[in-house]
Simulated assay, not measured.
Amino acid sequence: MHTLVAPGQHVLFLNWRDTGNPEGGGSEVYVERIAGELVARGHQATILCAAYPGASDEEVNDAGVRFLRRGGRHTVYFYAALMYLAGFIGLGRLARSGLGRPDLLVDVCNGLPFLCRLYSRRPVVALVHHVHREQWSVVLGAVGARFGWWVESRLGVRVYRNCRYVTVSAATRDELSILGVEPERVTVVHNGTPEMPTTPTAKTSHPSLVVLCRLVPHKRVEVALRAVRELVEQFPTLRLVVAGQGWWEPQLRELAEELGISDRVRFAGFVTDAEKHELLSSAWVALTPSLKEGWGLTIVEAGAVGTPTVAFREAGGVAEAVVDGRTGWLADDEPDFIKRVRELLADGDQRNAMGQAAQEHAAQFTWAASGERFSNLVAAVTAVAVPPAIESYLLP
Rank of each mutant, 00 (worst) to 15 (best):
E195K: 12
R158T: 15
H129F: 14
V151A: 06
S208P: 00
E152T: 07
R185F: 13
G192I: 08
V242R: 00
E182T: 12
L127Y: 15
E254D: 15
H206T: 13
R146F: 04
V181W: 13
S169D: 08
V151T: 09
A227V: 00
H190V: 07
V143R: 13
L176G: 02
H206S: 14
D174T: 12
R239Q: 06
Q251K: 14
A171E: 15
R220S: 10
K203A: 14
S137A: 15
A224M: 03
H218R: 11
L225M: 11
Y165M: 09
T187F: 09
W149F: 08
E254T: 13
V181H: 08
S169W: 03
H132M: 14
G141H: 11
S208E: 01
V189Q: 10
H190L: 07
V168F: 05
V168A: 02
A142D: 14
P194Q: 11
K203V: 11
V139H: 12
H218A: 04
V241M: 08
W136L: 01
V211H: 02
Y160F: 15
R133Y: 14
P236G: 05
V138C: 01
R161V: 04
L176N: 08
W150H: 11
R239P: 01
L240R: 00
T204W: 09
G244H: 02
R229T: 11
V221L: 06
G192E: 11
L238E: 02
E134A: 12
V232S: 11
G148W: 01
V221A: 06
Y165V: 10
V216F: 03
E249K: 04
R146V: 10
L209P: 03
R226C: 05
T172Q: 06
A202N: 04
L179A: 10
E233H: 10
V188K: 11
T199G: 06
E152G: 04
G141Q: 10
T187V: 15
P200E: 10
W248G: 05
E134W: 06
V210H: 07
L215Y: 03
E230W: 00
G246C: 00
P217K: 07
G244Y: 01
G156S: 13
E175S: 13
L179V: 10
A170H: 13
R229I: 05
G244V: 02
R214H: 00
L215M: 12
V151Q: 03
A224D: 00
E254P: 04
L140G: 01
A243D: 06
W248R: 08
R146W: 13
L140I: 06
P250E: 09
V181T: 05
V221K: 04
T204D: 15
H132R: 08
S177K: 06
V157Y: 12
W136E: 09
V139K: 12
V216W: 03
C213D: 13
P250Q: 03
V168I: 15
T172W: 03
K203Q: 12
Q135M: 14
E222T: 05
D174R: 14
L179E: 12
V143T: 14
H129Y: 08
A142K: 09
E249P: 01
S169L: 07
P197M: 04
L252H: 09
E254V: 08
S137T: 11
H206K: 03
H129E: 09
V159T: 04
G148H: 03
V210D: 00
P236K: 04
V157G: 07
M196V: 12
W247R: 07
A171N: 10
W136T: 09
K219N: 06
T237L: 13
V166R: 03
L238C: 02
Y165K: 09
